[in-house]
């Protein structure tokens, strides 16, 4: 089954029309738990991007030899392998980055978004498209995490990227995990509203 989308379309699709967090509503646990600051969102986003791209490409290469009955264990195995490899390589050759990224990389093994993209896309499509789809989804996840992190960091600790911008802390509640649900829900509604508004103004249904 070939798809008719260009690489650019595949990327923008991941960021906008099929954003993993706001549209597909996948991997909500990290979105709620970790997105307390913009930096945390960015770090997790980078980690997911790499694992997603590597896993998508791997599955796409081996798609013809994977037995359909055991595809889910194979996906998990692929993701776990890449997470381990990235973790080891970072620890060995980029200790500075590892000190910051280490804890994020290890979280990824059980992320729904990666398994879901392997199942929906990479196991059917050619390698090149899978690569761009992985890029799109990874970037979409990163943008979503950073957007949530922006709102929560600003409202929770009055800062952006660790710099104090408001001078006071509006509501400590926003740093707590439960606030993540509210922020994600409200932002989801907000983006859907923009989309509906945009489509109406263009005369689409």
């Amino acid at each position: 089954m070939a798809n008719d989308k260009s690489s650019l379309q595949l990327i923008t699709r991941g960021i906008l029309s099929e954003n993993p967090i706001f549209k597909l509503a996948l991997s909500m646990c990290p979105a709620v738990g970790i997105s307390t600051t913009v930096m945390n969102g960015f770090m997790l986003g980078v980690a997911v991007l790499f694992v997603q791209v590597f896993s998508s490409v791997t599955i796409s290469i081996f798609k013809n030899v994977i037995h359909p009955r055991i595809r889910i264990p194979t996906y998990t195995l692929t993701i776990a392998t890449w997470v381990t490899v990235i973790d080891l390589v970072l620890a060995a050759y980029l200790p500075e980055a590892y000190a910051k990224m280490g804890i994020f990389v290890k979280l990824i093994v059980a992320f729904a978004i990666i398994t879901m993209r392997l199942e929906m896309f990479a196991c059917k499509e050619p390698v090149k498209d899978s690569f761009w789809d992985g890029m799109g989804m990874g970037l979409g996840f990163m943008v979503g995490m950073m957007a949530i992190g922006f709102v929560r960091e600003l409202l929770g600790s009055g800062a952006i990227l660790g710099y104090d911008v408001l001078g006071f802390k509006p509501l400590l509640f926003f740093i707590l995990p439960s606030a993540g649900f509210f922020v994600v829900g409200l932002m989801m509604a907000f983006f859907n509203w923009i989309e509906v508004y945009y489509k109406r103004s263009k005369g689409l249904k």
Partner: peptide, 18 residues
């Protein structure tokens, strides 16, 4: 598949452990 994954991780470990 498990053996393949294990050998990839093992080789990576050998190269990076030092």
């Amino acid at each position: 598949s498990c053996l393949l994954a294990a050998s990839v991780m093992g080789i990576c470990f050998i190269f990076t452990s030092n």
